[in-house]
Amino acid sequence: MKNNKEKICLLILILIPILFICYRIFITHSKNSATLNNHYINYENKEYKENTNIPINNELSNEKFVNEEKSFKSNEENFSKDNIEKEEYIDEVVDNEVEVIDNKISESNSIKILSIDSYITEVSTIDYKIKKGDTISQILREFESTCNYKTGYKYLKLLNPNIDLNEVEIDTIIKIPYDTFYSGKLYLIKNGDTWYKLIKENYPDYNVDNFSKFLIDINDLPNSDLPLGENIFLPKI
């Protein structure tokens, strides 16, 4: 009986270290397994996050591409719009230039010219019979309010080329531009006057160069200079 107790005690003493060692092994194994599982889970989470970043990056990339495409389309539309506006503006400018040229051509074609010969042949006159005591200066004095003597004499000379006005005989018939003398006007030349200004204000339908020569001729002026402070005759045409 005593021997059996001793055997049991000895067996217990042997089993206790064995159980303790088994327990330690079990604990260590559990910790290692948990660590491995955590590593595995962390790895899977990390891989998942990296994988999920890919679509996000792709989405960002796609969004950037869409924005760039929209920007390109917008620029393209603006470029097309600008080109259309520029083309319309160029067409408008060209049309305006053509219109201006046409107006100038039309204006140039509408400008009238007048020669002294053609004018004299169309001037209406009356026949006046010279009587005793008549002189040319006396006759022209009647029209001095509208036509100066020098110009009146030039008219009579042009209308009566075969008559010597300095020695007019009695009963000589001369042509007098009665209506022309009275319908015209005297204009006093002042500072700032030019042929261009004078003609544009009084004869806008006529060519300036041509009509200035006509006025110089009909007024019997010595040159093309406007006689400052003197009257010149402006006929009604």
Rank of each mutant, 00 (worst) to 15 (best):
S33V: 14
N62K: 15
S224V: 01
K236D: 14
N83E: 04
L10N: 13
I218L: 05
L19T: 12
N38M: 14
I14M: 08
I139A: 11
I174M: 06
N78K: 12
A34R: 15
N223E: 07
K175E: 12
I21N: 04
N166L: 02
K190M: 03
I173H: 04
N57G: 11
K81N: 12
L114R: 08
N78L: 12
K49E: 14
P235V: 03
L234N: 02
N78E: 12
I189F: 03
K200S: 08
L19C: 13
E6T: 10
I21H: 04
M1G: 13
K2Y: 10
N191M: 05
C9P: 00
N42G: 11
I189Y: 01
E77R: 11
E142A: 10
I25Q: 11
T146S: 15
N162K: 12
Y40F: 13
E107W: 05
E107P: 00
N62G: 15
P177R: 09
T180Y: 03
C147D: 06
T135F: 03
N78T: 10
E169I: 03
I176P: 01
K154Q: 14
D91I: 00
K86N: 07
I14Y: 13
K131E: 11
K190Q: 11
D179Y: 14
D225Y: 05
N42F: 13
Y178H: 09
D193K: 03
N207E: 14
L11F: 07
S224N: 08
L165T: 02
N223V: 05
N148S: 07
F72D: 06
N42E: 11
N51G: 15
C9W: 10
L186C: 05
G152H: 02
T194L: 05
T194P: 01
N62F: 12
H29L: 14
K64A: 15
V98L: 09
L114I: 11
I90P: 01
